[in-house]
Design a protein around this nucleic acid. Structure first.
Lengths: 339, 339
DNA sequence: CCCGAGGCTACAAACGTTTGCATTTCGACG
DNA sequence: CGTCGAAATGCAAACGTTTGTAGCCTCGGG
């Protein structure tokens, strides 16, 4: 029913190859024939069939985008930016959600491989070796993780974590807790590494709590433990967990930031809207989405550019952090002086 | 480089058609040959090329999903559910974002048409007639809007709006405001219709403010107007706007719910996390996503089922609504007593 | 007047599948 | 022993493109 290249050829009295070239190599066809063909195509509502084209050229003009959990507010801005950038280059985007599951991830890459020109792998949970193997089957750009020399877009979360710890130390906190993310998360390891180092430098204790689900529930579930622990300030793997944690603390009668300071990571929209507003590390997710798409599209141009993009993060201080409450940490009864 | 059906045929010493049947019609091939073929395929890492298959069968096993703004927290749960349901049936999902733009919408449907078995159109902004025309070019399922007899999944937002108004009236409010959504939104019209009727029944005034952008900013931008207006309670087109509005009111020194009650619509995750927690109309977005996919996949089975699914909504009362403050409507200066 | 060179177009093969039809094999039945 | 049918497999066309090659025509230069 939909018009094919043959219909257009018939209608304009030329061979199908001429029609094809009218669109893919216009300079090769006489201007007058070209306009006639274009007119016919227009009138018939002809649109080249991309699947057929892909079959012969090997280029699909599609991109796969694999995320751990699209309902996690961290991802939508990235997806949106990637989709928009892709469409600017006439590409379409497959979106798939792995539910934080490494084997689903592998399956998806393989399933998508034939249908796309490349895959954007966001915060993958797979092993490095598996990723490297997959990258031999289909062009891959990794977001939020560094694996071998593969093209990657990473946000400098280590810097952000360090700044967060420095911020808390600067406020006078000495006992910190890190609520870590899911097992297998490269970002979580980076944060842990950077936070540990920064805490040592600042002469702070740092206790690690986790791994946890990177969701509101994950944060909520450790609230009790934090509330009864010695830490006066907490850095969470992401904003969602930080917010869940604040909810949990609130329920336990612990105030933020008066009793315990909380810092998140990501700077999702939501963080500006909680009360208190969340101090957090801003991640340039939209920029990352665009950059990843650009990198993928550049793959073909100069083979094996194997670029790396490292995006800046930045500490955003809002209302969920403050100087430690002198009463809280020790046994009740001892009054502390000024901070 | 990737293994084709021909490689498998060669490796297992049969004709390609036998290989094909091994996968698409196993009962037609001798069990012993079948296992041999399967083994070879496995070993070669053979995966049928879907583009090629689509070319001849006409079925792509892809679905298009078009949303107005994927960064709007309303959509991700829908997208997630749709993707998951689609994958359960071995389908993949193209996601595209129209930025609330009707012409982009049309373009996208056309661009996707050849690559998918059908398109899920979520909260479309196009005209009815255009939608009907497009539905002749590609199977369409409309979400959140009713157009002609086309298959649709709608959530009964009218019921929810009515309940919201009744709730506010029940608390004693008599002057309500409706902060409406974007022009062209069917949902916004439904809400308006239902709220107007309910307000009349409840003998309430209802002033309409809008249209507005369906975002936090949209809500924020009308805060001043609401703060100085006569309304003691507000129903917003969606949660994001309600939250933005609350922020704006807060900045203007107006308390929620003591001075003004606010009700949202959607029940996005966020609404449970603001303070005060938002009273809102819960929309079953995940269910809608699943239902829409199911409906699309059923399209082929019995031609023109033209089903309709109508999903229940439900008022969730939280902390952003309360009885009206008797002092507020009058001139400022009067201190309020207990709430 | 002839030759060569462009410019333009047609032809046909190829991409990786599916599928109707033909062919082969084999066992059973009359 | 011949025939029929079913089961299993091969054959080839088709899906809608792209693209290398070959053909035709025209035009300018020698």
């Amino acid at each position: 029913m939909p018009a094919t290249i043959r219909d257009v050829a018939k209608a304009s009295g030329v061979h199908i190859s001429t029609v094809s070239r009218t669109f893919s190599a216009p300079h090769l066809v006489n201007v007058e024939t070209r306009t006639r063909v274009q007119a016919c195509a227009e009138q018939l509502g002809y649109r080249p069939n991309r699947a057929a084209r892909a079959l012969i050229t090997g280029r699909t003009f599609n991109i796969g985008l694999i995320v751990a959990d699209i309902a996690n507010p961290f991802f939508p801005p990235l997806v949106k930016a990637a989709e928009s950038q892709a469409r600017r280059h006439d590409h379409h985007i497959f979106v798939a959600d792995t539910n934080e599951d490494a084997v689903v991830e592998e399956d998806l890459v393989r399933a998508l491989a034939k249908q796309v020109d490349g895959v954007l792998l966001c915060s993958p949970r797979m092993s490095n070796s598996l990723i490297e193997q997959l990258s031999r089957e289909v062009p891959l750009v990794i977001v939020n993780r560094q694996v071998g020399g593969l093209p990657a877009v990473v946000m400098d979360v280590a810097y952000g974590a360090r700044r967060a710890v420095e911020h808390l130390a600067g406020l006078g906190h000495r006992r910190l807790a890190l609520v870590s993310g899911p097992r297998g998360s490269w970002t979580s390891r980076e944060i842990r590494r950077a936070a540990t180092a920064a805490a040592r430098t600042a002469r702070c204790e740092l206790s690690i709590v986790g791994p946890n689900l990177p969701t509101e529930e994950g944060g909520l579930s450790v609230a009790e433990q934090i509330a009864h622990g010695p830490a006066t300030a907490v850095l969470a793997y992401n904003d969602l967990m930080a917010i869940g944690l604040m909810e949990g603390l609130h329920a336990a009668g612990v105030r933020t930031p008066e009793d315990i300071s909380v810092v998140g990571i990501d700077d999702i929209t939501l963080s500006r809207l909680t009360r208190p507003k969340l101090t957090t590390v801003a991640m340039p997710t939209a920029t990352a989405g665009r950059a990843a798409v650009d990198m993928l599209l550049a793959y073909g141009d100069d083979r094996r550019t194997t670029a790396h993009v490292n995006l800046q993060t930045e500490l955003v201080v809002r209302d969920s952090t403050a100087a430690p409450n002198p009463r809280r940490p020790a046994e009740p009864g001892d009054a502390a002086g000024t901070v």
